[in-house]
Amino acid sequence: MDTKNVFLIMRKEAGESLRNRWFILYTLCFSALALLVLLFSTMGGEIAGYSGFGRTAASLINLVLLFVPLIALITGGISISQERENGTLPYLLSHPINKNEIFVGKFLGILITIWFSILLGFGLAGLGVAIRGGEGEISGYLLTVILSALLAACFLSIGFLVSVYSGKASKAIGISVFLWLLFIILGDLGIMGTTVAMDLGIKQVFVLALLNPSEVFKIASVLVLSPRFEILGPVGVYAVRTFGQQGVFYLLFSIMVLWALIPFGYAYLVFTRFRKEEK
């Protein structure tokens, strides 16, 4: 793999994303909502064990859960499929560049731009907390940023997996939105429903939660922000008693890393090895 070609594609992809009006709109909305969250979260004193940075981060978790997977899934979904559909991919491949360089370059380029928008939102909110003299552990805030970035990588990987199987961008977007609904909106309902229907134990509910990267992110974020893990309910108590607070965090972090790597790896193989032609 020629890293120079990877960098070229990454730079092109990042540049295109940053010039894309939908991406600009997303970034502005995310930042504006982050500031709104800051405004409401810094009203009043400590609530439920959170103050200043912690409360702001806790409020931002739901915002991240809604926005980040959606943009990651959609931009990942159209990454390869759109180039296939409009014919620029075969033309690019007629030059001395390989599929693996294109794949990695595109992934990194899009990931960097999503991270930029996350950093902008969290950065503005964090700056606001600091200016308003907010208290609390900044380390928890920073860990939430890192977890948000990792969440973006998870869903971008899933988006890329959708993309390598799609010949059309419209199909990829449709599947991506469906997956967003499944993971984000129906995820909690799915766990609750399955728990009740199958009369699952706490251990099984915990394992079920690990099958959804957004649930893993939620649990990990609450863990880093709150000294009181009972907020997570019996499942949280079970997890901390079984693995220890730090152990649970490392477990959850590792699972998120796997959620980023496995779809990425499989999509990479499909694009570079299994699918040999791009007409």
Binding site: K4, L8, K12, E16, G87, Y91, S94, P96
Partner: peptide, 30 residues
């Protein structure tokens, strides 16, 4: 092999970039 070939397709399809930027992009690859 592809570095030895200049290909002109039937329907040229480019990224939505400026002409000079397109040349810089492919020029960098080459």
């Amino acid at each position: 092999s592809r570095s030895l070939v200049g290909y002109v397709p039937q329907d040229p399809l480019f990224y939505d970039m400026k002409t000079v930027d397109i040349l810089h992009f492919f020029g960098s690859i080459r």
